[in-house]
């Protein structure tokens, strides 16, 4: 498939000059960016074209090429690793994105297509995305707003936040919070080891919702008309609810279930040693003040 690449290849090699290249695109092409460090900012416009702006400096070359399947942008060091390059890339809103980097922050706005982002030390901030949306950072927060589809957001050492989104959602980190607000999930897997987890959004009939933490609190916003079978599990934590719940029984090991409405959705709330809490919609964020993470984590946030 890549044998067809050469015919439409465009190369922009820079020594000192700023790159400003515009490539005409057609439906079905994706944008693939392979960067090393710096920032990738992607914006949407109404033209069927991709505009790449960058200032790579003397030590790094930037290559822009186009094939039937993708417009590719990659950096390469002239001697050793590439230096940091800040990209501003403008794409049609329908264009899928596949962006990766090492020391790379990624910011995307206005794209209504599948998005994949992977970075190691960098923040990921996305407004938009439709279809498969996968955002990953090892040491950087991940924030996603306004996405629809199959959403997969991961960090390791920072927070994960999703808002105004809908679909099948997986949101995980190890050392950070997982917060989902104004989210309409049909299925949800949200978890962390050291941090709080919260979900504020509709609980759909037949949906499956799993929120878990080891050290942190787990908070679920439940509307009055929700229909769910809720299972609460904790080892040494607590359970609190802002409203009465119909507990029929409690079980050894602090594990119990109750039904709301007809019990249509399956909800699992687990915290090994934190508090599992039910609140009404709109009251999720009040628990943020209680967040208590180890000092090492805070140190790492600023050690980049």
């Amino acid at each position: 498939m890549f044998l067809t690449l050469a015919s439409a290849a465009l190369a922009a090699l820079s020594l000192l000059q700023q790159i400003d290249t515009t490539v005409t695109v057609r439906t079905g092409q994706r944008l693939v960016v392979d960067a090393y460090g710096g920032e990738i900012e992607v914006k949407a416009w109404g033209r069927n074209a991709v505009r790449v702006e960058a200032d790579p400096g003397a030590r790094t070359s930037v290559e822009v090429s186009s094939s039937s399947g993708a417009v590719s942008v990659r950096t390469e060091g002239r001697r050793g690793p590439p230096s940091s390059v800040d990209f501003t890339i403008t794409v049609p809103a329908w264009m899928g994105l596949d962006l990766s980097g090492v020391y790379t922050d990624v910011k995307i706005a206005g794209v209504r297509a599948p998005i994949t982002v992977e970075t190691v030390q960098g923040e990921v901030d996305v407004d938009g995305g439709e279809g498969a949306v996968s955002l990953r950072s090892v040491q950087g927060s991940v924030a996603l707003r306004g996405a629809k589809g199959r959403i997969d957001v991961h960090s390791v050492n920072e927070d994960v936040r999703v808002s105004d989104a809908s679909g099948e959602i997986t949101a995980e980190t190890v050392n950070g919070e997982v917060v989902l607000e104004r989210v309409d999930a049909t299925t949800l897997d949200a978890g962390t080891v050291n941090g709080d987890v919260g979900y504020d959004g509709p609980i759909r009939n037949g949906g499956r919702y799993s929120l878990s933490s080891h050290n942190g609190d787990v908070t679920l916003a439940v509307a009055e008309n929700a229909s769910a079978t809720v299972t609460v599990s904790t080892f040494s934590g607590e359970f609190e609810s802002d409203f009465p719940v119909p507990l029929r029984e409690t079980r050894k090991g602090r594990r119990f279930s109750f039904s709301l409405g007809t019990g249509s959705a399956q909800v699992s709330l687990e915290s090994f040693q934190g508090t599992v809490r039910l609140v009404r919609p709109g009251h999720l964020s009040r628990n943020d003040d209680d967040h208590d993470k180890d000092q090492d984590h805070d140190a790492d946030r600023h050690d980049r």
């Binding site: 090492v102 020391y103 190691v120 030390q121 090892v138 040491q139 390791v156 050492n157 190890v174 050392n175 080891v193 050291n194 080891h214 050290n215 080892f235 090994f272 040693q273 090492d296 790492d300 050690d303 980049r304």
Partner: peptide, 23 residues
């Protein structure tokens, strides 16, 4: 790997190991 990345990974592995031990 970058030393900061290694340190972050090892620290998070330690966090997980601690949780495993508690469980």
């Amino acid at each position: 790997l970058d030393t900061t990345t290694v340190r972050v990974i090892e620290r998070n592995l330690a966090t997980i190991d601690s949780a495993i031990a508690q469980a």
